[in-house]
Simulated assay, not measured.
Amino acid sequence: DGEIIAGRGFLPGLCVSLKHNSQFAAFTIIAKGDFPAELNIPVPFSLVSNDVTNDMLVVMPGYWFMYNMYALARNSWKYTDRDKRTEKKQLIEHDFLAPDTINEIIQALQLFKKFTGEAWILNNPGTAGDAVSVGEKLLETNDAALNGMDIFASGFENTGRKTKLIKVPACYSVFKKLISYYAARLLVNFIESQNITSVKQLQSLLPASTDVFEWKNIGGQLITAEAIGEMEKNIKSGKIDTWEEVHAVYAKQGDNYEYDKLQHALAAVKLVNGFSSDDSVELKSLLDKSVETKKWMVDNIYSSREKDYTNPFRMMVYENREEMDKVVGRLEDNQFIKQEKQAFEEYRLKVKKILGMMNN
Results as ranks from 00 to 15, higher is better:
K289H: 11
E87P: 00
S237G: 12
F96T: 09
E93S: 07
S237M: 12
V269C: 10
R305E: 13
S180V: 05
I179R: 11
E319S: 04
W64Q: 15
N147T: 11
E346P: 12
C15I: 09
V246Y: 04
L57I: 06
K284Q: 14
F152Y: 09
F96W: 14
Y79N: 08
M60S: 15
S303H: 15
F65G: 07
I151T: 02
E244F: 02
A268R: 12
M357F: 15
S303R: 02
Y259C: 02
S280F: 03
Q221F: 14
K200A: 14
L139T: 07
E282N: 05
D100M: 08
I5K: 11
M315F: 07
E104T: 13
A6T: 11
V328T: 08
M297S: 15
T53P: 00
L91K: 05
M358Y: 08
G33Q: 10
I121K: 03
Q339S: 05
I41N: 00
P44G: 00
A267S: 05
K270H: 06
N273I: 12
E345C: 13
N195G: 06
Q203C: 10
W77N: 07
T197S: 12
V328Y: 04
E87R: 04
K341Q: 10
A6N: 04
E244I: 12
T101V: 11
T210S: 07
D260E: 02
I337M: 03
Y181L: 08
S180Y: 10
D279R: 04
D279F: 04
L139P: 05
I102K: 02
D278P: 01
N217Q: 04
E226N: 06
Y302R: 09
R74W: 13
K341A: 02
L262V: 05
K326H: 03
S237R: 10
K270Q: 06
K114Q: 09
V317C: 05
I106G: 09
M66R: 12
E258K: 11
G274M: 10
G155K: 14
V317I: 07
D333Y: 06
D150F: 02
V132I: 08
L178D: 15
V212R: 06
E38V: 09
D260I: 01
Q342H: 13
D34N: 06
L187A: 12
L187E: 14
